[in-house]
């Protein structure tokens, strides 16, 4: 009996283990920053580098922090989704212009439309490293206390907003402690 059952069990166990890997994107890394405060930063805005903004200035209300660059093709793809999100006005949309030439970024936003309430310019990419950014686009959902609650790597879609972002924002606005 065991002679046949044991190999079968081993094969089933292995199958379950390997099946979990199917459909997972190995290039998507889980962020260790989830449920941790946004790392301290101070950056100039894209519009005016002399206007300095730190993570302290963004406290008080939740916001979506979208890491983008004018050279990033996937960022162009997700742009309409960001615009719709901003028009809806459920939360602030803040941009982090990552490793980009400010002039390129500005030119692109004039052409494509600028949905951001505020854009921080991280030309050197230093704040990106602090945030664990390894590719654009990346989008962080940050609560009113400045704690990162969710991160999406890659193109932001309506499905991600409906599944991950909107439920959290609704729960917070209902008065549940974020």
């Amino acid at each position: 009996m065991w002679r046949y059952a044991l190999p079968l069990l081993v094969v089933i166990a292995l199958g379950v283990l390997l099946f979990q890997g199917i459909g997972r994107d190995p290039s998507t890394l889980p962020s260790p920053l989830i449920d941790h405060p946004v790392p301290a930063f101070e950056l100039g805005t894209l519009a005016d580098p002399s206007v300095r903004v730190s993570q302290q200035d963004l406290l008080g209300e939740p916001y979506l922090l979208n890491v983008f660059a004018s050279w990033c093709a996937t960022c162009h793809l997700e742009h309409p989704v960001l615009k719709a999100f901003a028009e809806e006005g459920v939360a602030r949309l803040i941009g982090l212009n990552w490793k980009d030439q400010p002039d390129d970024a500005k030119r692109w936003l004039v052409r494509a439309g600028d949905p951001y309430a505020l854009i921080l310019a991280d030309e050197s990419g230093a704040v990106g490293i602090d945030l664990g950014v390894y590719g654009t686009p990346e989008t962080f959902l940050i609560d009113a206390n400045g704690v990162i609650r969710f991160k999406h790597v890659g193109e932001l879609t309506d499905a991600v907003i409906e599944r991950e972002i909107r439920p959290r924002l609704l729960a917070w606005s209902d008065g549940a402690a974020p």
Binding site: L29, P30, S31, P32, L33, P39, I129, D130, L131, G132, Y134
Partner: peptide, 8 residues
């Protein structure tokens, strides 16, 4: 680096 990017 682990605190930013994970054990990866």
């Amino acid at each position: 680096l682990v605190s930013r990017y994970g054990d990866f």
